[in-house]
Design a protein around this nucleic acid. Sequence first.
DNA 1: TTATTGCTTTTGTACATACATATTTTGAAT
DNA 2: ATTCAAAATATGTATGTACAAAAGCAATAA
Lengths: 355, 355
Amino acid sequence: MKKYEFVENSLFKQINTGIYPAGTLLPTEEQLTEIFGVSRQTVRRALSILEDKDIIEKKQGSGSMVKKRNPAAAGGKVSVIVTYIDDYIFPGQLRGVEEVLSKNKLSAILSATRNRICSERRILLDILNDPVAGILVEGTKTALPNPNIDLYKKLAERGIPIVFFNSIYPALKDTLYVCADNRRGGYELVTYLLGKGHKSIASVFKADDIQGHERYSGYISAMFDNGLFVSDSKTIWYTTETKESLFDEPKRILSSIGDATAVVCYNDEIAFTLIKLLTVCGRRVPEDVAVVSFDNSSLSEMSPVRITSLSYEDKNIGSIAAGKLADIINGRKASSEIIPWKLMEKESSRSSARR
Amino acid sequence: MKKYEFVENSLFKQINTGIYPAGTLLPTEEQLTEIFGVSRQTVRRALSILEDKDIIEKKQGSGSMVKKRNPAAAGGKVSVIVTYIDDYIFPGQLRGVEEVLSKNKLSAILSATRNRICSERRILLDILNDPVAGILVEGTKTALPNPNIDLYKKLAERGIPIVFFNSIYPALKDTLYVCADNRRGGYELVTYLLGKGHKSIASVFKADDIQGHERYSGYISAMFDNGLFVSDSKTIWYTTETKESLFDEPKRILSSIGDATAVVCYNDEIAFTLIKLLTVCGRRVPEDVAVVSFDNSSLSEMSPVRITSLSYEDKNIGSIAAGKLADIINGRKASSEIIPWKLMEKESSRSSARR
DNA sequence: TTATTGCTTTTGTACATACATATTTTGAAT
DNA sequence: ATTCAAAATATGTATGTACAAAAGCAATAA
């Protein structure tokens, strides 16, 4: 290793481990020359790099001072990585993110992955080349093995704080996150339907996002806990790529639902479209089939039959996550949070099960 | 002046004036030593600064090459200023912006003004302190005198390209913009309604955005051109601040509409809510009152009575504007563009005027 | 023709020295 | 105790030298 790099790294470590706290002066160049056994030129080169990185501040005649971590001075830019910008509930979350970051004198650099691993990788590589004060990220295809985990780890090693929202990769469970209680949500919806007398409950879930797995897990647990048999064929799985064509074959959907008197949907978007399809096929909602879902978005209100859906109450996952990231950046503490649901009962399930 | 600064400035000037074009090698360090009559250390320091500024690229054993101007290397960040992030048609425009910027290796720094002058000012001041490669901005309260015009001018003087979208301040008409043909849109909607036999046409417009004035101007011109009398009371004006309470007093709205058989609305959001109100008050749409509007957003499809609305066809104002900004940043030419409308006739006006 | 080898050129690392300039400390004069 | 100037201390600028490492080039051998 080059000598100036060694000096630079040594000093950086010592600064980070508190040997030279913010505000204190480093030893003089002459002292460092003796400590490291290198020439003053080499020491100066190392210090110059640290100054470029905004870690120390040199002052002629006075010395080299360790700088305070100042988010605004360090750019104050946060990379916000979402799957979609204009779909479904994301705009609202994004608004929350922007509001909170703005209040904390941070600004959002926005990127969308469209739930594609390759886009996510490109974005993360960009950040490695041009670091930011923090990263707020919604995982991409969180239920599949992800080759970008190494990049997240590398970014974390560099000291860039990362907060996940909506979903997190199982491999990064120790990172901060803000997610809904998806498993419990699935459980609650089934419990609610059982209370209405439903016994045969179908479901539609997303296969490539971990939220889909968790919501399914809650659904299936609730069914088993209540001693009900669940046929695999009663769960319809879809992915990012098959979402558009999911309802192209009504027959397949109807045969999956079969004799079920209720359907648990992955989210309001699916529920909205499913209700349309059922109506067209002559099945009444809720009289023939009850439909419930997650997120309680504006779609659940706009649906011709308003949709019973789990709500985040007045909590905005985007702003909560952004708040935690701002806390970390400003040297405050923060911990992961799981947002509970609140059931909003509406017309799509407001009747007992038909016998 | 310091010697290394002199060498740095001299080389920088020579590079900029084409003496050392992009792609060519600078003289070797030894040659520069002789040319400038300074030591190799001093030459190296000057070159090192130029390398930091991404103007040259040094390569051991080979030489120092003048780099091509690369916008991505020069920060590549674009400030995107919108009024709202999650409202109405803005998420879709924002998606278009992000897609196009991303394709051009630019990234979006997002801020929202919530249509408030003070927020806009704060954002522009931030940009002055920490410049960006370009600005993409949706004007805030464009129909009112704006105290931030001076800041836009200052930014333009600094050579930061600016592109407006959706609306532009009259005082900045020479700046690039991408807007819909709002005046013509108002004219077309009225012409369409006249063709359906309507003679008394009310309207709802937004008073603080220039789009509202333009759409109103088209509406009123079409009426006059067809020799129809227009009572001022038939136009309902609202602002950013009064939008929420606009439909709180149904009586006021109904009395303004009076005997009109059709209403031109500022946008689908207003039309959607108006149709709800009319329906509740026992007025059928379109049999009693036809409703038409602008934007042809998803709301126009979701409305219980699908809304006749002017569409941008498949054009996304956000992506068009972002494309123009990228053109300017990359040294290409671009000019303002006015997007035409296409009328999408749906149920909300699909009947002739009642007599 | 192709691959290898060694030479030359060019930039990179490292140390030594001298003096300039900004800041702080010291100490004497008041 | 206060003020002011000199001294000491710290970083900044500039040059010289030596050798290392990478890249390119040319001669040579297979």
